[in-house]
Design a protein around this nucleic acid. Structure first.
Lengths: 337, 337
DNA sequence: CTGAAAGCGCTTACAG
DNA sequence: CTGAAAGCGCTTACAG
């Protein structure tokens, strides 16, 4: 708790002024070789590190980004982690630290960390169609990037998977293989009702594309309660004995699917073609053998941070806020036929 | 990015001095009712929030805790999340924010956030027997709490499950049911070799207790690569045809066990008794039906933060650093017989 | 190439 | 009960 050396200590030891030390540190003006040497010797000898708070006060930059997320009981937490990893990793590479905010009251938390100047900008995860954090964000006048597509993208750098295109690609893939009837398991109903737009963007596009291509497709809500997943999947399959293909747009269901289908004695793709939507990392963690569209958490998290940092590093720059929907990429693992 | 109002603005509007506003905010001296009212009216009207950096500079307290963790490829990331949730949630409840640090170079990252005064204290997750972050921590002179038991606990508040007691309880449980031969799947070998002490604390205690109780017990390393888990579990069971009980001390293996055993046609507990070590949350997320010892990430994360905050709030207090090994608690789900 | 000084926005002894 | 002023540790125009 004892304070470390300050820039004044360095200045004294090096026999220069504080400003010279500061400039040596920032490189914002040239320092004679010999002076430079004395300064850095002193820094090393004293073990000096600039105080972040004092620097932030003087520069109005904290070099910290806020990462706002919530662990919703109906979201599959393990999948969230990949966004967190991508965001923190990219931020560090760009010289920023991450303030992790998981408060249940997202708007209040956002106001707190922006108004108090704790962060230079924020990344919002899991943005809802009509996200209550966005009005707060607009008042905060801080750069922000989101993962997830809100209704109003004004002033935000927005990154998300193109869920509509993903659904169409998946339906086309199954149609081209000749499947006449398909069952879709969507995210749990609460995800729809609270405004998780990815849920209906995928489902609605799948339904439309199926109609267009002359395929029968029925959508069913996935279970929020993991223990009910086996029964629900079973019920869905029982209800559609003619269905030869299953689309899973729900991480929790996907993670359990090998066990569930195994228990039912359903062979993939012999008895049933299966295709899903998740990340390669997710597939690896749970050894999921299914053909899937990459949900790209790494790319999305990284892009969001890079856009945010670019904006922070070029304040008042000419760049308009951007909304980028990442094109889906289907990885064929042979689970469809 | 436009700065918000400062304490000087509030003082002007309320017609008082800056110090009076500050004292009204902190409550550190009494303010007359009328003055108080004018101050809080001004605060509300202006939408004032104190600047965190300036406050930190003046008070030498940032109200931020560092959370140091790493996502090791051989750790099952979903299980880490529960510690993160417990830590952030508890910190917020105590008025602290969390700086999430996942740098691969843990010691350097720790030095950076402590020397620069970004955090008041740190929580270390997944502490190794001979953790390279600890020497840095000792030089940093900042309070710290860990989850995980290092060899040298000097100066640290340490929280961990009593893995030895857990192993003994599990072996006793199986022995009391009459199982003569038991197989144990441990964490992957790299966890042992890099010093994840929980791995051998559990294994060694299990081996000893089995010997003491006259049970045959063989330990096998779990797989770091999820895709190899089914084969490895299969090989282990094949190698011990007489074994009637399986202890799983590896999250990745536990998560896949229903699918793996299902595929082999092994009924639990009919053909095989299964008992594991994980959290109730983990069991819920993956619908694991096995009897288990609670690994208590919520309790451990919460306790670590509470100890740390207590120390920060009582600097120079009389409390000696504490090492607390949480007693295991077995939840019988009927998967042993 | 370098220094003295003001300023960032708070808190807190010191005085009254 | 309240205020003027010093100080926290930096950065950066301003001057030389």
């Amino acid at each position: 708790m004892r304070m470390g050396p300050t820039i004044a200590d360095v200045a004294r030891v090096a026999g220069v002024s504080r400003s010279t030390v500061s400039y040596a540190l920032s490189g914002k003006r040239s320092i004679s070789g010999e002076t430079r040497q004395r300064i850095f010797d002193a820094i090393r000898d004293l073990g000096f590190t600039a105080n972040a708070g004092a620097r932030a006060l003087a520069t109005r930059r904290t070099m910290v980004l806020g990462l706002l997320m919530q662990f919703e009981p109906d979201e599959f937490a393990p999948a969230m982690l990949q966004y967190v990893m991508a965001v923190t990793e990219t931020a560090r590479r760009k010289g920023y630290d991450i303030l992790l905010v998981t408060d249940h009251d997202g708007p209040a938390a956002l106001r707190r960390i922006t108004d108090s100047g704790m962060v230079d900008g924020v990344v919002l995860l899991d943005v809802l169609h009509d996200d209550p954090r966005l009005p707060v964000l607009r008042e905060a006048h801080r750069p922000a990037a989101t993962v997830g597509l809100p209704a109003d993208t004004e002033g935000l750098d927005v990154y998300d998977l193109d869920f509509g295109a993903a659904a169409r690609q998946i339906v086309d893939h199954l149609r081209d293989l000749g499947h006449p009837e398909i069952v879709l398991i969507t995210p749990p109903r609460p995800v729809f009702s609270r405004g998780g737009a990815y849920s209906w963007r995928f489902r609605d596009a799948a339904v439309e594309q199926a109609a267009r291509r002359g395929v029968r497709l029925t959508a069913h809500y996935g279970e929020a309660d993991p223990s009910r997943i086996p029964a629900t999947v079973g019920a869905v399959l029982d209800a559609h004995p003619q269905a030869t293909a299953l689309i899973v747009h729900n991480d929790a269901t996907a993670a359990m699917l090998p066990a569930v289908l195994g228990a039912r004695g359903v062979a993939v793709p012999g008895d049933l073609s299966v295709i899903s939507l998740y990340s390669a990392d997710f597939a690896r963690t749970f050894s999921l053998p299914y053909t899937f569209v990459e949900s790209a958490p790494g790319l999305l998290g990284r892009s969001a941070v890079e856009a945010l940092v670019h904006r922070l590093d070029h304040p008042g720059g000419p760049d308009r806020p951007v909304t980028r929907l990442v094109a889906p990429h289907l990885i064929d693992r042979g689970s469809t036929r």
